[in-house]
Amino acid sequence: MAHLILASSSPRRRELLSQLGLSFDIYSPNIDESVKLGEEVSAYVERLACAKAEAVLAQFPDAIVIAADTSLGVDGQILGKPKSKAHAFAMWQMISNRKHDVFSGVCVRTKQQISSIVVRTQVEFQNLTLKDMEDYWATVEPLGKAGGYAIQGIAARYIPSIHGSYSNVVGLPLHETVQLLTAFKALN
Results as ranks from 00 to 15, higher is better:
S34M: 03
D62R: 12
A67W: 03
F24C: 07
I95A: 07
D25Y: 01
R13M: 09
L72H: 06
M94L: 15
E54S: 14
D69H: 08
V108T: 05
V106M: 08
K99W: 10
G21P: 04
H100C: 13
E39H: 10
K36R: 15
H100L: 09
D62Q: 15
S28N: 09
S115K: 13
D25M: 06
K36C: 09
Q93P: 00
R98F: 08
A63Y: 03
D62P: 01
K99E: 14
Q93C: 05
G105W: 01
D69G: 06
K81S: 04
L20N: 02
I64P: 01
R13D: 07
R47K: 05
F103R: 08
E54Q: 15
A68F: 04
A67I: 01
S96F: 03
P61T: 07
V74Q: 02
P82Y: 07
V45D: 05
H87D: 15
S42T: 13
A51T: 10
A58H: 08
S71R: 14
L79Q: 06
S104W: 02
G105A: 08
G73A: 14
A68R: 02
I31C: 03
L22W: 05
K83T: 13
V41G: 07
Y44E: 10
Q113D: 12
A90T: 13
D62S: 13
D32C: 12
I66V: 14
K52S: 04
L57V: 09
A49E: 04
T110R: 02
L22N: 11
V108F: 02
I95P: 01
S115Q: 13
S42K: 13
H100E: 01
W92G: 12
I78N: 06
V65D: 03
Q112R: 08
S28H: 07
S42C: 11
I117C: 11
K111T: 11
P82R: 12
V74L: 10
K36H: 11
